[in-house]
Simulated scan of single mutants.
Amino acid sequence: MAIPQRQCLKSALENRDIIPFIGVYDVFSASIAAKYYDALFISGFGFAASHYGLPDIGFIAWSDIVAFVQRVRTILPHHFILVDIDDGYVDTAVACHVVSMLESIGASGVILEDQKRPRRCGHLDGKLLMETDEFLVKLRQVLATRQQLFVVARTDASDPQDILNRAQAYAAVGADAILVDGITDLAMIPPLKAAIDKPLVFNQIAGGKSPPCSLDELKQAGVSLVNYSTPCLFAAQAAIETDMQLLRERDGLLVKDRIGVPECNVHLHQNLVSRNHKINHDR
């Protein structure tokens, strides 16, 4: 399936200095984030939490993530969608199948990491890495399988020389962009940018190892894409905790001055219009 020009990240990067991707955890959060940003990130952390109620340590089934992306694409036909596919769900053949499926339903890109199982969030300690040559086999196959899909190669290495070696190797075989997860100092970005002729991706996550940075700071450092992994998930957790406490403190009396049926229903009907527009456009 040819990716429409409006969803092609390679074309977008020719015209934009930096693209922020907002991490979403379900279709509802995606539809809200889409009102403010034109690029969404399907976060493995957020999906594991929302779909299974479990931590991001390898529970995600590839069929679940593909179905989720399809639902998001149905109501948001014009947004960029970047998908976290972890390690490609272990096996190289599975990784290639997932990439084909995601491209066929309109994903804009994927992030493939070099962790091995048991995997974990990139901002936690104790990560295990595949050997570089082992990961390159998988990466090459994925790149050979995709047609126009944008492929980000992610390394979870922490040693500066290992980071550089892996980034150069992944770039050399054709990855479209490089993500070094868990960077602790923004000063690491400029020399990395100088060493590889590929766009760099920076992962922002509240409470993570990387320092919080503005888009301008990241652009000046040499970053081209920024994925905000979990802002919607963490905002939802905070809001639900607050409202449940209020409901209990008020003896079950609902707070009237917040979102209610009219506001939510308007938003949901807008999603329906977007879905119907896509269906009619595809006919």
Rank of each mutant, 00 (worst) to 15 (best):
G58I: 01
P160N: 11
P77Q: 07
Q237I: 15
D251Q: 11
G182F: 01
L128G: 05
L179K: 01
L54Y: 09
N276L: 15
L112Y: 08
I196T: 06
I189H: 08
C96G: 07
L143T: 13
I183V: 13
L143D: 12
Q5G: 03
V173A: 01
Q5M: 05
R275M: 15
S50K: 12
S274K: 09
G208Q: 08
K193A: 15
R6P: 00
H79V: 15
P191T: 04
K10W: 01
I42R: 03
A153F: 03
I60G: 00
T184P: 02
G109M: 11
V261F: 15
A187G: 10
H78M: 03
Q270L: 00
H281F: 08
L254N: 07
D17F: 04
E217R: 12
V66P: 07
I259D: 04
I65A: 05
N227A: 01
C8L: 13
H79G: 09
D86V: 03
S224D: 10
I163Y: 07
G53Q: 10
C232Y: 01
V69D: 06
R248T: 14
I60N: 02
H281T: 04
Q70V: 06
V66A: 14
V24Q: 04
I205M: 12
A144L: 12
A238E: 10
A33R: 09
H281N: 02
S50M: 13
S229M: 01
M101K: 13
D125V: 05
E263N: 05
L254I: 11
I57Y: 01
G252H: 14
R117A: 08
I189L: 13
E249P: 06
I259M: 09
S108R: 10
D243M: 13
A177S: 11
I189A: 08
A221H: 13
I65W: 00
A157Y: 05
S108N: 08
L143A: 11
G222F: 12
V223A: 11
R146Y: 10
R154Q: 04
E263Y: 00
I105H: 04
H267R: 04
N276V: 02
D86W: 00
L272I: 03
L200T: 07
D197H: 08
C96Y: 04
Q115E: 05
E113S: 01
G53I: 09
V27I: 12
Y37D: 05
F21T: 10
L192N: 03
D185Y: 05
V94M: 12
G122E: 00
L254D: 03
I178V: 07
G58V: 03
G106R: 02
S100P: 00
L164W: 03
N15Y: 00
H78W: 03
E134C: 00
L164E: 13
Q168D: 02
P190T: 12
A236I: 05
R275A: 14
R154V: 07
D56W: 05
K138W: 06
V173Y: 04
A238D: 07
F80A: 06
L246Y: 12
E241Y: 10
